[in-house]
Design a protein around this nucleic acid. Structure first.
Lengths: 190, 190
DNA sequence: TAAAAAAAAGGACAAATGTCCTCAAGTGCT
DNA sequence: AGCACTTGAGGACATTTGTCCTTTTTTTTA
C-alpha cells in the first residue's frame, strides 16, 4: 500500500488519517499472465493501481484487428477509464502480459469516497487530468513522430515492454505493420 | 449565457440558483480573426466556452513546423488545458480563425468556485473526463484511420472547418502533407 | 481594375510502408 | 527427443506518401 499512498500524494495532498480512513474501500487483486482485467463489452468494474506487472490495453478496429493502445506498467493507474467513469460497456480490453498485483476500487466505492472525503473530489479531478495529460502526449507523439522515433521512445521509456510484449502488439502500438517494425529493428541493430 | 448553462447541465446537474451564484465569476470576451487566445510559453489565463466562432489549436514540432492538434468550435470548451490546470507555460497556441465570442473564467475564479460550490467539484471532474474522452477518441482516430478516412470524418463532423481553415493547417491536423491532402481531395471529387 | 502576393492544385520522382510470402528460430506438448 | 505450432526475420513487389517543383486559382492591395 505504501507505493499507492506515494502515488496519491504525488497528485493531491492526502493526510495519513485520510489515507487510512479511505483504505477500506480498496482491495488487492492478482492476475496471472494472460488473464483479462477487462473484457470487451464488459462494464469496467474497477479502477486499479498497478503494484507490479504489465497490462496491455487494446481494442478491435473495424477489420477486427487487435490494436494495442497502451502498455500500463507499475506505479500507474489502469482501467478502461471511459467505461469505468460512465459505467458503460468497454470497447477496450485489458489483459495481463505478466503476473500482476493490483489495488482496486469499485465504482460505488469511489463514489462513496467522493461523498465522504472532500480530498477525494480533488483526487478524482486530478486523476482525470492526469489521464488527459497522458493521452494528449500520446496523441502528439502519434501525430508527430515517425515509427522509428516512436520505437526509440518506447525503448527509452518502457524498455521492459519490448521484452514482454510480442512483435505484433508492439507494431500496432506504434501504428505500423510487423514488416515495418522488423525493418526498424534491423536498422537500429546496425 | 443560456448556451453555456445548457452545456453545464449536460455534464453535471447544476441548479438555476447555483448557476446564477456562479455566473459572476465568468466574463465575456471577444476575439477578432487572427487574434491569439493563448500564445506559446504563456500560462493559459482562462478556461473558455465558445459561444460562436472557431479556434485553431496548434504547436511547433521539433522542426518548428506548426502542427494543428484541434479545431475548437461553438458550444465547446477551449483552453490550453494542461497549461491552465497546472498554471505552467503553454506549448500549445490557440488562435481565432474567425471572429469569436467566448465566456471565460480565470484559474483563481475556478478555484473559488471549487471551494464555494460542491457542484463545481463535480463539474471540474466531469470537464477533465470529457477532455480525456475527446483526446482518447482523437488518438484512436489518429492511430487507426487512413488520411482519407480522417478527411471524410472531418467533412462529416466539422464541415465548417474545411471552409475556414487553410489547407496547410488541415493537412497537419490530419497528419499528412499538403500534397497528400491535395490527392485526397482530388480522389473524393471524382 | 491590374499587378503582386498568397494559397491551392498537381507533375515527377524518391522514399517509406504495406502486402504477401517464405524461411529460420524458438516453444510447448506428448 | 521429435513433431507441430507459434513467433520473428526478411525478400519481392505494389501502393502510399513525401519532397521538390511548377502551374493555376484566389486574394489582397496599390
Amino acid at each position: 500500500m505504501e507505493k499507492f499512498k506515494k502515488y496519491l500524494s504525488s497528485i493531491a495532498s492526502i493526510s495519513d488519517q485520510e489515507f487510512i480512513d479511505s483504505s477500506s474501500y480498496f482491495s488487492p487483486k492478482k492476475l496471472k499472465k494472460g488473464d483479462f482485467f477487462v473484457r470487451e463489452n464488459q462494464v469496467c468494474p474497477h479502477l486499479a493501481f498497478i503494484l507490479s506487472g504489465t497490462i496491455r490495453m487494446f481494442y478491435l478496429n473495424d477489420k477486427s484487428e487487435e490494436i494495442t493502445s497502451c502498455f500500463c506498467t507499475e506505479n500507474n493507474l489502469t482501467s478502461s477509464y471511459k467505461s469505468f467513469v460512465l459505467q458503460e460497456p468497454s470497447h477496450l480490453m485489458l489483459q495481463a502480459i505478466t503476473d500482476i498485483e493490483l489495488i482496486v476500487i469499485s465504482y460505488d466505492g469511489l463514489q462513496k469516497l467522493y461523498n465522504l472525503f472532500p480530498v477525494w473530489q480533488t483526487i478524482g479531478r486530478a486523476v482525470a487530468e492526469q489521464e488527459y495529460f497522458r493521452m494528449e502526449r500520446y496523441a502528439a507523439i502519434l501525430n508527430n513522430e515517425s515509427a522509428k522515433e516512436k520505437y526509440l521512445r518506447l525503448l527509452k521509456e518502457q524498455p521492459e515492454v519490448l521484452q514482454l510484449a510480442n512483435i505484433e502488439d508492439i507494431a500496432t502500438y506504434l501504428g505500423v505493420t510487423r514488416r515495418t517494425l522488423s525493418r526498424i529493428r534491423q536498422e537500429i541493430s546496425n
